[in-house]
Design a protein around this nucleic acid. Structure first.
Lengths: 247, 247
DNA sequence: CGTCATGTTGAAGTACGTCAATGGGGGTGG
DNA sequence: CCACCCCCATTGACGTACTTCAACATGACG
């Protein structure tokens, strides 16, 4: 009963979420045909590899992942965390090759698309093509914000920003409960995302725990004092929460 | 003779550059109609304002500019420098509003497009729409690289990276001569781009000058030893120079 | 001729990095 | 069931690459 194991776009549980804009029937129908299949991967699986030219693009349905760049000397830069609803592989889709890798941090389920079909999408579905560009612009916007934080903010602010952004994104994706949101990442991953050393990340986290700003244990993140956390960030960095496209 | 002052897309001097892919006649024709006009601005002019929803999008034709985010406390993050051929305002085009500002650093000439026409572009010209997405992906890729440098590299590497990237981009745009490429920016701008203080940027620049890696004076940048400069960077960060779209 | 913007340089402080050691949990094999 | 190991979190000590403060130089401009 394989077909029962594949989520139909019409029934996609993500589709109903308020963070995503709703689509007319015709476009949903196109997406259903555009969708080449579904895969489930284990934690640690490489979805896309820096420098490669993947024939497949993905939208995360379940589970959490991470995008990162590897430098020659082994240092890493985590670009972003991957949540359900995120589209990954656009670089492979339109450019020569991926400039970063994508890895599953937990078990993940992903929607699979064929890179080769992308052109037909632009020809037949300008509205979805527009949405794809929208997604790219959102990603660019996020990276600009990350650059500003990493470039200008001290360690404490960086950590609060990183965890708060992740927390809010999880909430919008309907993840987590009273015990907080899932956080399957290591402190090393957080450090690599924020341009900090592991040791300093750990010590700053301790300070934030002691001040009751947040709790982070058992792979769960809990923002204990949202108002104080947000007050530590620049008001300019608060993004409006307009519904975004889901491809 | 106003119409003589406006460059026709067919005769656009940028179009012939090898850095840009060539377009079929029909698409060029569309772009000519898509183009709403041209403007010339003075140094210091604000082209796009963070938080605003500009009705106009631009492609730089001549001159140099800068994209930046302003933080509450007055700190700035320079996102990127704007060169001829760069498309600016995509965020305003597809999202609610710009997340950064764009300012002219020298006198500039820009191609003007109406945001309202963007949708017709997607409907009528899927190939150009694809190119637009391509541009967004390039920008995302650049920001990922910048994030990795600012997050992981020491001051000297950051400066070499920033100036080398700018230098190479200028060269591809046909700017500069034996005396080097134009560099109308202040050291403060460079510092704000790389997440360094002005003082430290200055001292690191001095060290690089003394080691004959580069020269920077009279608003001119010259890479005196390209091979040594490139050797200071991660090989992973060398981007392939495939022809990119020009909108 | 003053004022302003930018570049330069020295001195002092500090936020951060590196090094190193410890401890706990979870798996695996004897 | 214990022994061992590996991964990750934690903590202290120490070094340093950076920031901040401050002063001065230079050229452009009115």
């Amino acid at each position: 009963m394989k077909k029962d194991m594949v989520t139909h776009c019409q029934n996609c549980p993500l589709r109903g979420q308020s963070q995503f804009k709703s689509l007319p029937e015709e476009q949903l129908d196109f997406l259903r045909r555009f969708k080449a299949g579904e895969i489930k991967v284990e934690p640690g699986a490489q979805l896309l590899l820096q420098g490669s030219n993947s024939p497949q693009l993905f939208t995360a349905l379940e589970g959490l992942g991470v995008r990162y760049k590897t430098l020659e000397d082994g240092r890493r830069q985590v670009i972003n965390f991957v949540l359900p609803g995120d589209f990954v592989g656009l670089q492979a889709g339109v450019m020569k090759e991926m400039q970063h890798s994508v890895e599953a941090s937990t078990a993940m389920t992903l929607c699979v698309f064929n890179r080769a079909d992308l052109w037909s999408l632009f020809k037949a579905q300008p509205a979805i093509a527009f949405d794809l560009t929208w997604l790219a612009a959102i990603e660019e916007s996020f990276l600009g914000e990350a650059l500003a934080i990493v470039g200008q903010a001290p360690a404490e602010t960086r950590i609060v920003w990183g965890l708060l952004r992740f927390h809010d994104r999880c909430r919008m994706a309907g993840l987590g409960d009273a015990r907080g949101v899932p956080f399957p990442y290591r402190q090393q991953d957080l450090a690599d995302a924020l341009g900090l050393s592991l040791v300093h990340t750990n010590k700053t986290l301790q300070a934030l725990r002691q001040r009751q700003i947040l709790s982070l244990q058992d792979k769960r993140l809990r923002m204990l004092d949202l108002s104080r956390a947000k007050a530590m960030l620049d008001a300019d960095l608060q993004q409006p929460a307009a519904p975004r496209p889901l491809i």
